[in-house]
């Protein structure tokens, strides 16, 4: 461990704001990207499913 205490880990020698905001932004961006990928896949499957069901009814 490079830090002695947990608060020291959060503050990071005054640079905590920068480090944590950079990490936060990146994780948020990756999370949004992953969520978007998942949601899009589900949407494609659902629309196709509905379309096939409609075709069957006809």
């Amino acid at each position: 461990m490079a830090f002695d205490t947990f608060p020291a880990f959060l503050i990071m020698g005054k640079h905590g704001v920068y480090v944590w905001s950079a990490y936060g932004f990146s994780m948020l961006a990756i999370a949004v990207l992953t969520w978007n990928t998942f949601a899009h896949h589900r949407k494609v499957r659902n629309t196709l499913m509905k379309r096939y069901r409609m075709d069957q009814i006809r």
Binding site: H15, Y18, Y23
Partner: peptide, 23 residues
């Protein structure tokens, strides 16, 4: 973030490297 030693010039800001470089 937690275990790598801090850079002797830049201190802890250098930890941004672990996302900046891969991205």
């Amino acid at each position: 973030l937690a275990f790598a030693p801090a850079d002797y010039q830049q201190g802890d800001t250098f930890r941004i490297i672990y996302i900046h470089v891969p991205a």
